[in-house]
Amino acid sequence: MSALAHGMRMDAALPADVPAMENSQALMQADGLCRLFGPEQGCQDISFTLYPGEVLGLVGESGSGKSTLLSTLSGRLPPDRGRVRYRDGADWVDLYATGEGRRRALLRTQWGFVEQNPRDGLRMPVSAGANIGERLMAQGARHYGRLRQSALDWLRHVEIDISRIDDTPNAFSGGMQQRLQIARNLVSGPRLVFMDEPTGGLDVSVQARILDLLRKLVRELDLSVILVTHDLAVARLLADRLMVMRRSRIVEAGLTDQILDDPQHPYTQLLVSSILRV
């Protein structure tokens, strides 16, 4: 995979003012991103480049700034400093310099956002079919029959019984809700999906099923993913490349196998050695 070739090891102390590499291949680029709520609370000095088809994992302990960074990258939380750029076809969009309309349009067409808690990402009072169809309707789809057909297709994709199409997510189990949320995000054919602990709060067997599904979809659809997790097993399974965060900064970045098998930074070493081995 070409993405792996680019996944070079970044030094933790890499200064943020290194001129951004103008790479026509890249999908997203963050330069000196900074959003702080207090000293070392939030994220700062974040620079990286994401390539098409690449799964980038963000790992680190609670409060290290992973979710803040994810919100900033996904257009939901303006940074104090720095910028995020996204390549939309031939032109680069500066996320926070462009209008809110463009940002929202990106978020519901070319991007997806899978929340940790499916209740945050789903519209709970409306049926599964309407949840899946919402993005299409927002894009102007006005044909009920076709909306329903794509809802059925996506339910099949995420392995939910199609007879549940008219049930509300309230009647679904946690794992089904999470799969429905994934379907709802992928229906618009996004290129980039943000995931915040997509398997957090699910039991181990359901987790395994969702991870399987995600791996399959990522491969089939050639998705880029930015994945936040504190679970290194999930990171190893899904991510091509990892960034380890601690106290609002990236302390180590590189290929997943490299980082997990040969951690350099003391914190990463601690993190890797603390995995329970059964």
């Binding site: 809110e100 929202r104 409306v126 049926s127 079919g129 309407a130 309707m137 927002a138 894009q139």
Partner: peptide
Amino acid sequence: TLHALGDYGIMHVKLYEDIVR
């Protein structure tokens, strides 16, 4: 915000639900 951006997809979600029910 939805009015400002003319982002009216969710209005059709309501009508979709009507047809479902």
